[in-house]
Simulated assay, not measured.
Amino acid sequence: MADRLRFYGGDFLADPLPEADVVVTGPDAQRRELLRRIHGALRPGGALMIYDLMADPESESVHDVLQRLNHGLIRGDSSSCTLAECHASVEEAGFEVTRTEQLDNLLGDWLIVATKR
């Protein structure tokens, strides 16, 4: 796969984004602009993968309640968003959400996969 996989460094909000089949990112405080830029860089049918610690306000599990406290008290909600907010932003940018899954890892990160319409 090494001949088919490339990583590009830079500032997602300032530098031009290279054309891509897949972009992996986390939610960002400026997510609407970022998602618009990613949509423009992805080839038709390309995939967007968002991987991060996101709050699920619909859940009452101890883990999710603690996550909401973490977002509000420790992180200050500066870059966090809820699953619903992330889904809405992704769809607004022209993507179709195809998968949402809470990962079985220490922090309970979420993975959202969407394709370019």
Results as ranks from 00 to 15, higher is better:
P16Y: 09
L17V: 06
K116C: 04
P18V: 01
C81D: 02
G9F: 10
L34Q: 01
L17R: 05
N105V: 06
D11Q: 05
D3K: 14
T82G: 03
R31G: 07
V23F: 13
R68F: 07
E96M: 12
P18Y: 01
Y8N: 13
E58W: 15
A93P: 00
P44Q: 08
D56P: 00
F7H: 10
Q102E: 06
R75D: 10
L103Y: 07
E33F: 08
V113I: 10
R68N: 08
K116G: 04
V22R: 13
E92P: 00
W110I: 09
L69V: 14
M54G: 02
T82H: 02
E33N: 12
L103A: 12
R117M: 03
H71K: 11
R99F: 10
L42N: 13
R6H: 10
N70F: 14
L111S: 04
P44C: 06
T100E: 10
F7N: 08
A55K: 04
I38G: 04
D77N: 15
G94W: 01
H71M: 15
M54D: 01
Y8Q: 14
A55F: 07
V23G: 05
F95A: 02
V97I: 04
L48H: 10
R31F: 15
I112A: 06
Q67C: 09
E92D: 10
G40K: 07
R75T: 06
L13Y: 03
A88T: 07
D21W: 09
E60M: 12
G45C: 02
E85Q: 03
R36A: 13
A88G: 12
E58I: 08
P44L: 04
V65C: 09
P18G: 01
G76R: 11
R32G: 03
L106R: 14
V62A: 15
R99N: 12
V62L: 15
S61W: 09
D28G: 04
R75M: 14
L5M: 09
D28A: 07
I112K: 03
D109H: 13
C86P: 02
T100R: 11
H63N: 03
L17H: 05
E92T: 09
V23R: 06
L83E: 08
A47I: 08
T98F: 12
P18L: 00
L17Q: 04
R31D: 14
V113Q: 08
I112M: 10
Q67M: 13
A20Y: 05
L83R: 12
S80A: 08
P27N: 13
L13Q: 03
A47R: 15
L106D: 14
R68S: 15
R32P: 00
A20E: 06
L107Q: 14
R37T: 00
Q67E: 10
S78Q: 15
I50C: 07
R36Y: 06
M54V: 00
A14C: 11
L73D: 04
E85I: 00
L48K: 10
R37W: 00
Q102F: 05
T100W: 07
R43I: 06
M54L: 09
Q102H: 05
G45P: 01
I74M: 11
